[in-house]
């Protein structure tokens, strides 16, 4: 069963990488989206699924990555800009992490949301003070290149999430989720572990934000820091299931395809479906699609 799941994952990645050779721009767009959401949901799970600190503000890392990238594009090579985007998102997480991670439970959830909105409004203010209402980018890399990078990030995020879960580090994080005070008492360095997880879960979204920006070649702060991004990540991960590494993949693939069907024609309906699914899963399927499939697998 385990090796079977691995084969499917490898096949997905190979398919994603091979898509440019098929040459359909539409298919490339879809794969780009799916890879993007897998990368985001897996990164989110590095902090939130492991420690139970639900972040409702991951759009801030995506936005910081996009912003850094738009400032650097044209000045340095594209790969370096990507690295800088990931680096600055991680740095931002490291800076705010200490105070933010002291806040627990539901207050952490609304705090991350508020923080993301605060940064969004500050960037909007800066941009309007500079007299720019959205920036165009020229000279973006070819779509194939962007797609390969995005698929690479999705694979990297999945491997990272897997590695964290199966390491000592991950065991420490699980201890924090179960009982933080007890973990601290028996000597788990909770503050350091939480901070590391926070930084780890911020880096890839920074790079994802940069890639998504290069794909649309247009930067607008209200969009780059759009709270819908945070919400979508959480929904995908929770619906997919947070107990396993495959959960976020299931959620991301499912919703990305659903969004292909509905988003362009009926964006509001897509959001309503998103909200309804979230409610149904929280109430009736707390272990997500992954748990659902696992149960079916065991029953047969």
């Amino acid at each position: 069963m385990k090796s079977f799941g691995m084969i499917i994952r490898i096949a997905l990645a190979v398919f994603g990488a091979a898509v440019p050779f098929i040459g359909s721009p539409y298919l490339m767009g879809v794969v780009f989206q799916v890879a993007m959401w897998i990368a985001l949901a897996q990164s989110w799970s590095m902090l939130s699924a492991t420690t139970g600190y639900l972040s409702l503000g991951h759009a801030v890392f995506y936005g910081v990555g996009a912003y850094v990238c738009v400032l650097l594009t044209g000045k340095i090579p594209f790969e370096l800009a990507l690295l800088a985007a990931a680096g600055s998102a991680a740095l931002f997480a490291a800076l705010v992490g200490m105070p933010v991670l002291r806040v627990r439970g539901p207050y952490f959830v609304i705090l991350t949301y508020g923080l993301s909105e605060l940064v969004r409004h500050i960037v909007m203010r800066i941009e309007s003070a500079l007299g720019s209402f959205g920036r165009m980018i020229f000279d973006v890399p070819a779509t194939e290149v962007l797609l390969w990078w995005m698929v690479g990030l999705a694979v990297l995020a999945t491997l990272g999430a897997y590695a964290i879960r199966h390491s000592r580090f991950g065991a420490g994080l699980a201890a924090i989720r179960e009982d933080e005070v007890a973990a601290e008492t028996v000597g788990v360095p909770v503050t350091r572990l939480k901070l590391l997880a926070f930084v780890a879960s911020a880096a890839i979204p920074g790079a994802v934000g940069a890639l998504a920006l290069l794909r649309t070649s247009y930067f607008e702060p209200a969009q780059a820091f759009d709270p819908v991004i945070s919400f979508t990540i959480v929904t995908m991960a929770l619906v997919g299931g947070t107990d396993t590494v495959r959960g976020p993949i299931l959620g991301a693939v499912g919703f990305a395809l659903l969004s292909e069907l509905l988003w362009s024609s009926l964006p509001q309906l897509y959001m309503i479906v998103l909200g309804l699914t979230l409610i149904v899963f929280i109430l009736f399927v707390p272990r997500g699609l992954s748990g659902l499939f696992g149960r079916i697998g065991r029953a047969s």
């Binding site: 639900l54 409702l56 539901p106 959830v109 609304i110 919400f231 959480v234 929770l238 509001q268 309906l269 959001m271 309503i272 998103l274 909200g275 309804l276 979230l278 409610i279 929280i282 109430l283």
Partner: peptide, 15 residues
């Protein structure tokens, strides 16, 4: 409840 209400909020806004 926070996540549930977030779902409700999204539904209300988009409705």
């Amino acid at each position: 409840s926070l996540i549930l209400f977030y779902g409700i909020s999204v539904i209300l806004q988009n409705l």
